[in-house]
Amino acid sequence: MMRKILVILAIVGFAVVLLPLAYQAGVQPAPGALATEYLEKAPAELGTANVVTAIVVSYRGFDTLGEVAVLFAATAGVGALLTRKRLGLASTREKRMPATEILRTATRFLTSLLILFGVYIFVHGHLTPGGGFQGGVVIATAILLNLLAEPESHLAHGVMTGVEALSGAAYVTLGLLGAFLAWGFLDPRVLPAGSIGALVSAGTVPLIYSVIGLKVGAELSGILDALKGDRE
């Protein structure tokens, strides 16, 4: 009884805090000064058609680097928590149901298409909606299909670790190139901005977003593989 009253009190308290937010949000007539600056300057300075990409990759690029680091830490945590030794399952190896013929055939067809689609999404991140995070998730979906189709199989951990380490190193290297050759860390103006709408434009923005895409794809696949289980 006491507990129910406390729960209700907590919810009512939160509701009181959130009410002014719900009332005031969205009433602003125009973007703020900072957003206006980004909207007007991003296409001219960086050559990106998608302003959100310009913010994620360049203006707030340091945040994104930190975010990728958090993602890496969480993946490492999941992997460390779920090894067989720690779970005390050293000897028992349970049998898994084999996948159906439909799933296996569809996987053979779809894997390459899904990976191609993921690469398409993150290569076009500076022109259309989408980018490294979305493309990385699509690549992780392709790997998930393979894990479902072959329940006994596992990711090649060497390959995954290699992709992740290389893309992380490439991300920082591109950032440092911006610091030395252009205005600051993660500045994409190392390469020419080009014309808006062309695939090869916006300096190093497509390169950075591709690297983020590969890293996110490898990390999310690692999480899925660790949670699936049966890892040595």
Partner: peptide
Amino acid sequence: DVAMTEAAIGSGL
């Protein structure tokens, strides 16, 4: 952009 991410991550993965 956010809609794509939410659909792929929030409701998929």
